[in-house]
Amino acid sequence: MRRLRLLLGLPLLFGGLTAQADECTPLLEGSLPALRGKERIDLCRFAGKPLVVVNTASHCGFTPQFKGLESLYQRYREQGLEVLGVPSDDFKQEADEAAETATVCYVNYGVTFAMTAPQVVTGKEAIPLFRGLAAQSAAPRWNFYKYVIDRQGKVIAHFSSLTKPEDPKLLQAVEQAIASPP
């Protein structure tokens, strides 16, 4: 699936608009409901961008990693990094209500990166995004598994829950994804 993206603010060619076609890789096809509101997050909006995807849970010992994930996002967002949080109750540690999940993310930890409504991330019922992540690397074995995806939509590294967002190996993978060609 190809998406045509108009790039405004660049020098105009021949007095018209400059256009660039970003291919939406199979990993990023589709959309997911946002954690807040009734909008959907079009995953193709991440095409051509370095991306960290993490499955989250509100009542997990690793939940404080939201703070580090937000710091990671703030540190690298000017260089194009996107972070996508995907809450899940697959490991029985997510809130029963999406409103409580939103409070944990947005109020308790000040998250500003994209968050979806809770999703299934493991097994046969996993959403296509996580089936694709598992096919390219490994399925999450617990909450706060982190996947670093380059600008071409390839998983270049994945990290367990034990890896904190400020870990030098994770930062190195993020910088590699940022430096990757579109």
Rank of each mutant, 00 (worst) to 15 (best):
F91V: 04
P165V: 11
A139S: 14
Y106M: 12
G16S: 09
P181S: 14
Q65Y: 13
L10P: 01
G16T: 08
S160H: 14
D90Q: 00
S71A: 15
A179M: 14
K38S: 14
Q93E: 11
G68S: 10
F144L: 10
S161M: 00
D90M: 05
A99G: 11
V83A: 01
P128F: 04
T122F: 05
P128I: 01
Y147K: 04
F159T: 07
E125Q: 11
T25N: 04
D150G: 08
R5F: 07
N143C: 07
A47D: 03
V53M: 03
P26F: 05
L72A: 11
Q74R: 15
G80N: 01
C105F: 07
P168R: 08
A179P: 06
L72R: 11
D167K: 07
P11H: 10
D150A: 12
K67Y: 12
A114H: 02
D22T: 04
A134I: 05
L13S: 05
V54P: 02
L10A: 10
A19C: 11
A173I: 06
Y109W: 12
R36A: 13
P50A: 12
P64V: 14
V155D: 04
D167R: 02
C60K: 07
P182F: 09
N108W: 15
V83D: 02
F91M: 03
T122V: 11
Q65D: 13
L84F: 07
C44D: 08
L51E: 02
T25G: 08
G37S: 13
Q136Y: 04
R36N: 12
P11G: 14
T116I: 06
T122I: 12
P26D: 01
G15I: 06
Q93V: 07
D96P: 13
R75V: 00
Q176R: 12
V52A: 05
G85L: 01
Q74D: 09
S180H: 13
Q136W: 03
T56H: 06
Q172R: 13
F159V: 06
E82M: 13
E97P: 12
A102E: 15
Y76Q: 08
D167P: 05
